[in-house]
Amino acid sequence: MSIEEQYRTRAKELLAGGAVKMVIGYGKGTTGERRRPIFITSPDEVERLVLDEACITNLSGYLVSEGLLSDEKRVAVFLRPEGVRAVNILAAESQLDSDQLVIFGFDVVGNEIKALKGIHVEEFADVIESLKESAPGVAKELLLEKIESMSPQERFSYWQGEFAKCIKCYACRQACPMCYCRRCIVDSNQPQWVNTSSHSLGNFEWNIVRAFHLSGRCVECGNCDRACPVNIPLRLINHRMAEEVLGTFDHFAGTSKTQEPVLASFKKDDSETFIL
């Protein structure tokens, strides 16, 4: 039985027995290559679930939809390791109770779908630990290498060019499981802390504010990068910040549901080079 069929069967059992009220997974999209998030609430609908190498979107952001988990009923969700990491952070930041989740873990290795064993976030600890171990050795994207080899002035103009395209549609924020604020700082208008205009200052403000808010929290699922309608390579910024946080604080975002947020906690042996 394929993993897709196994998971459909499991989804059917969970829904039929009332163990979960909803399964958040992937369904067919508009075109052959597209997959879209779907929300299954009836055992008769599980045939709509699809699981293949095109199932890339990190679905964990839907878990913090207003009211979804407030009735204490359980929800099942399809998650890749990045998704599990995101759930860990959401739990660590008190946004959800991970015990309310039933995880359908999977990963895409090349063109193959691999099932990840476990139901609760804790059971994926080894998978995440091995990702942390291998993170420093992962080959850098060519574009990032190119940007890193630029002089600060060149790098600034590169990002200036990229941010000039920003239309402030906030697709990056809305697609990001870590951007769960009911009211984002840029939507606070009394006072208006951040300009709403997408002129060059406004675009810099927005993209830099977001990069900082994601440092030490981004799980590099790529949702923002794929959502950006004007093709700003947002993944590079977040990857670079994740690298920095890993190197400086040995912090890999989302290893457990009790992990302390790196930029909101203090350890005696923290490097202090950045303070003085």
Binding site: F39, G61, Y62, C169, Y170, R173, A175, Q192, S197, A227
Partner: peptide, 25 residues
């Protein structure tokens, strides 16, 4: 609309969507 994430990608790329806001900076 259950899967709608509430971004403005559709409205901003739309040739006919025309809503605007007036802001003092």
């Amino acid at each position: 609309s259950m899967r709608c994430i509430g971004c403005a990608s559709c409205t901003f790329l739309c040739p006919t969507c025309h809503c605007f806001d007036i802001q003092d900076e």
